[in-house]
Design a protein around this nucleic acid. Structure first.
Lengths: 133, 133
DNA sequence: TTATCATATTAGAATAATTCCTGTCAAACC
DNA sequence: GGTTTGACAGGAATTATTCTAATATGATAA
């Protein structure tokens, strides 16, 4: 069970394992609070500090990415493959878009930057929100 | 001077005019704090509430757009034309990219959303930050 | 112009998300 | 066994933003 997390090279405490298994394969793009609430069920003494510390460690090792898509809070994505997002403007639901759009910046637009990547966000209203009015 | 702002149909108070003229043509993508500090010089009693209220009014009328690009705070852009951004991962400097990338979502990726738009962000390290190590 | 009224302003309190700090504990290392 | 290192919990501190309630002011019409 914890074999798959060995390679992370972080100390695998029970709290961290709970966070990791909650994140594993999770496509809901949870916020720190979502993670806290989920793990709280198994560890009633869990604190936000532990959630943030663990996320910080995982971020630094490139095992989760922080999404700046939601203007109210940070969201976290355990899927670190190159992908984009579709976001509902009403309920903030986020859906992964796995497609390569081949967008390049020409030399005159690059402003001397060392480019490291890009991301595309699509905005709209999801099916559920359309119905509820 | 204030003629150009008449069409906004918001009450044009001195504070608002100061905010509007600070934003006019501003390409720095300022945060609420940047705006507050700038206007404070002319209006020492300026409050954050006024900055946020005015931004809210302008947002609702589609005269500024809120950028969710910076994970620490919202940034505001008076340029409401369709454009994208190039962001420095070190200093958070934001540069406009005026180019149409023609990105479309195929039916199978659209998940029943009513699409309203998209935005592309390019990430990298700017020239200045490269030099300073 | 002036009176009226709806709206804007202000300071400060409240809230929400996140970060920091401190004492404690446990694992890993000698 | 003793020491170092890193993680934990809990709470305080910070930062961005929103709310509140009293007061002030721009816009409009008389």
């Amino acid at each position: 069970m914890m074999e798959k997390y060995r390679e992370l090279h972080i100390k695998l405490t029970p709290q961290r394992l709970a966070i990791l298994s909650f994140l594993d394969g999770n496509k809901s793009h949870p916020s720190a609070e979502d993670i806290y609430k989920a793990v709280l069920k198994q560890f009633p003494t869990m604190s936000f500090a532990t959630v943030y510390n663990t996320l910080e460690a995982l971020k630094n090792r490139g095992n989760v990415q922080e999404l700046k898509i939601d203007s109210h809070k940070k969201r976290y994505d355990p899927d670190i493959s190159r992908h984009h997002h579709l976001i509902c403007l009403k309920c903030s639901k986020i859906i992964d878009i796995h497609k390569d759009f081949k967008i390049a910046l020409s030399e005159d637009l690059i402003h001397g930057f060392d480019l490291m990547g890009n991301s595309v966000e699509f905005y709209g209203i999801c099916q559920k929100c359309k119905k509820h009015h």
